[in-house]
Amino acid sequence: MTSFRLIICAVIVVLLFLAALAVFSPLTLLNALTWSDTKGVVLKNLSYGEEARQKLDIYGPVPTEEPPSVVVFFYGGNWNSGSREQYGFVGKALASRGIMAVVADYRLSPQVTYPAFVKDAAQAVAWTLKHIGEYGGNARKVFVAGHSAGAYNAAMVALDPRWLSKYGESPAALQGWIGIAGPYDFLPIVAEPVRLAFLYPDTPVDSQPIMHVTAAAPPSLLITGSADTVVNPVKNSGRLATALRTAQAPVQTVSLKGVGHGLLVAAFSPILRSYLPVLDDISTFVFRTSAAARGE
């Protein structure tokens, strides 16, 4: 097949996918179109705390002799919506690359406000560090990741030691962290739902991840789309990357031209992986960072 025909086929696939998104709930469709291309363990509804929403699911890769690296993933939704069941396609995607995924819920606004959801994220990560070995994962190779609001949660856990310390852990125990279209420097707050979640106008200045950058930050991967109109990639990921580099903390950045906010997480689905390399970038980062930590 010629390259021209391949391009035409790719365009048709993407157009059909976008047409389907107009009919079905995007997350429902993504899960429906995600086949399980791994025969690893899947464990659901595990508790990392006592609250109803303090639950997580584990998606394991095909077992190997060496325990796999682990990514704890937090979804987005303005801190007022979302559930781990909607993001099974993310867990399956990571497992298909030989990475154990932990997809965790956290409490939402308006039932709670900042910093409750950050505490939940830290508690889920601390649970993973303490217990993932019991499920076949490597507790010495734990990464935290998220998309949008979930990327904020991941950033706060990785950069601000206050939160993991509440559960007897430290960011130093993390192998690295991954932020996908995350808000890291968003004062003053414009979006009304976010204002409620962050007690605006009394939002603490230290609620911003960029305030907690030090040379001790775990290695970072920041993924953005140039067409993101929901979370400004220059103000947020751009400024955070600059702050990390200034502090001489390791950081990698990826900007996907013409890609918007939602497509950055939709890229985990099998139908879009070939066109949007988000999963490739994350897998490469996880394995290279793990190898570097071992001195390979």
Rank of each mutant, 00 (worst) to 15 (best):
A216F: 09
F285G: 00
V118I: 15
R245K: 10
V234W: 08
I8N: 03
V72Y: 03
G262W: 00
G260V: 00
G179R: 02
A241C: 05
D281E: 15
S290A: 08
L279S: 01
F89W: 01
D281P: 04
Q252K: 13
S274K: 04
K166T: 14
L221V: 13
F268T: 02
P219E: 15
P218W: 15
T214E: 13
F143Q: 07
P63S: 13
L256V: 09
D37I: 06
A145K: 14
V71E: 02
P61M: 10
D228C: 11
A154I: 04
F186G: 05
E65K: 06
G91P: 00
A241P: 13
I8C: 10
D57G: 15
V112W: 00
I12L: 11
D281A: 06
G182Q: 12
T64I: 06
S220T: 09
V23W: 01
L18D: 11
G238D: 06
N236C: 05
Q248G: 03
S220H: 11
Q86E: 15
L221M: 14
G77M: 00
S170F: 10
I282Y: 08
V23L: 10
D206L: 12
L108H: 08
S3G: 09
V90Q: 04
F17W: 10
A149K: 13
V213E: 02
N31G: 12
R239I: 01
G76Y: 00
P209A: 14
S274L: 04
L221I: 12
F17Q: 02
R5C: 05
P250K: 15
L222H: 07
I180P: 01
T203C: 12
S207H: 12
V190E: 06
P161I: 05
G258A: 05
E134K: 11
A93I: 00
L94Q: 03
P161V: 04
R195P: 02
D120N: 08
K166S: 15
A154E: 08
V259I: 14
G179Q: 05
A197P: 05
Q86H: 07
L221T: 03
T242K: 15
V234Q: 05
T214M: 11
F143A: 03
P171W: 07
G98W: 08
N153I: 09
L272S: 06
G150L: 01
L15T: 01
P26I: 00
A19Y: 02
I99Q: 06
T113M: 12
F143H: 07
L221G: 00
T229R: 00
V41Q: 15
R273S: 02
P277D: 04
A93P: 03
L30T: 03
S47R: 15
V112K: 09
W35I: 14
Q175F: 09
I271S: 02
S226M: 10
D202K: 10
Y87L: 05
N232P: 03
